[in-house]
């Protein structure tokens, strides 16, 4: 019996197990099996003891030469330290960008909530600093170019025009007042390659956060783009809608703004309005109604927009959601 048990135990233990045991890399049942084997196999037990003495000797040498590099080639050590520090700094920057991308992807799972939008109607001018940067394949054309752009205060008409291109997707204009962001205007992007608008909020401290929304007809790259030294652009896509949120790089509201924006996006439902209903578009309740402030009604801003192109195939889908303002 004993012989049988010994033979069985030995056959289960391999040479690699003995070395893993010596090196302390076995745990649990495997370690117990090796211990049981060593109790029975004197030859292996002696080997393991010898290997352990070898390890103890090497550990003694290691401990004695723990700071063996001290004073050795100091110039090279300084150069290596500098190299390591720079490499890690670069890695940290890459990790930050990756983390921001992941965060925006997680936020993209946000659900749709409906909110009233209070839009100022006064005509405002925002000077937005957006230096040149390589624009990815994006429907906004050169909308990110370096120039001062005038924002139209009448966002309702801009958005209505934009809505005519949305077809079966809806878009909620986010209410960012909880983040301390005040809407300052909207704009149809005339030079965009496809229907697109720009909405802008001010943080009250001179910072502007822009939301670019476009409709794509083909795949567009999503990218995370640094805009100059101080501004950052978060790009993402949801269905046929493409977004770019541009704001100060250190703004704590930026990612929260992304979240708010994403809550306002509904996935395509597959519904579409028949082409015959195009002409009745104005008669139906608009899914978005920008609330125009009283003074704005008395003095409506001039619009410098091109005549919105008539939808050629399918008009905007109607998706009433209570008091929601949706496109």
């Amino acid at each position: 019996m004993r012989q049988g048990a010994e033979k069985g135990a030995r056959s289960a233990i391999e040479e690699g197990d003995l070395h893993a045991f010596v090196d302390g890399r076995l745990t649990g049942e495997r370690r117990a099996a090796v211990l049981a084997h060593l109790l029975l196999d004197r030859q292996d037990r002696e080997r393991v003891e010898a290997y352990r003495r070898q390890l103890a000797g090497l550990a003694r040498i290691r401990a004695g030469l723990d700071r063996y590099g001290e004073g050795f080639a100091p110039e090279l050590q300084r150069a290596l330290a500098s190299r390591i520090a720079r490499a890690r700094s670069a890695q940290r920057r890459v990790r930050f960008l990756a983390a921001a991308l992941v965060a925006s992807a997680v936020l993209a799972l946000g659900v749709w909530t409906v909110r009233e939008v209070q839009l100022p109607s006064a005509r405002l001018v925002a000077n937005v600093f957006e230096p040149d940067f390589p624009t990815p394949e994006f429907p906004f054309g050169d909308a990110f170019g370096r120039e001062d752009r005038r924002l139209d205060g009448d966002r309702e008409r801009s958005l209505a025009w934009f809505a005519s291109h949305l077809r079966d997707q809806t878009l909620e204009i986010p209410d960012l007042r909880e983040l301390g962001l005040v809407p300052v205007g909207g704009q149809v992007l005339e030079r965009a390659r496809s229907p697109a608008v720009r909405l802008a909020w001010s943080d009250g401290q001179g910072g502007i956060i822009d939301l670019y929304v476009g409709v794509v007809t083909s795949d567009a790259d999503q990218a995370f783009t640094m805009v100059g030294d101080s501004r950052v652009a978060l790009h993402w896509r949801r269905g046929r809608l493409v977004f770019a949120l541009v704001g100060p790089a250190g703004s704590p509201q930026l990612l929260q703004a992304v979240q708010s924006v994403l809550r306002g996006i509904d996935q395509p439902t597959g519904r579409s309005v028949p082409a015959g209903e195009v002409g009745r578009e104005k008669e139906e309740p608009r899914p978005i109604r920008a609330v125009v402030e009283p003074e704005a009604k008395a003095n409506p801003p001039a619009l410098e927009r091109p005549t919105p192109p008539a939808p050629t195939v399918e008009p905007a889908a109607v998706k009433p959601t209570g008091s929601a303002k949706t496109l």
Binding site: L65, Y68, G69, E70, F72, Q77, R78, L80, A81
Partner: peptide, 15 residues
């Protein structure tokens, strides 16, 4: 910290 790390690595390489 990097200097110490380098010393540790160089010590390892040298021994």
């Amino acid at each position: 910290g990097v200097d110490e790390e380098v010393l540790e690595h160089v010590s390892g390489l040298r021994r």
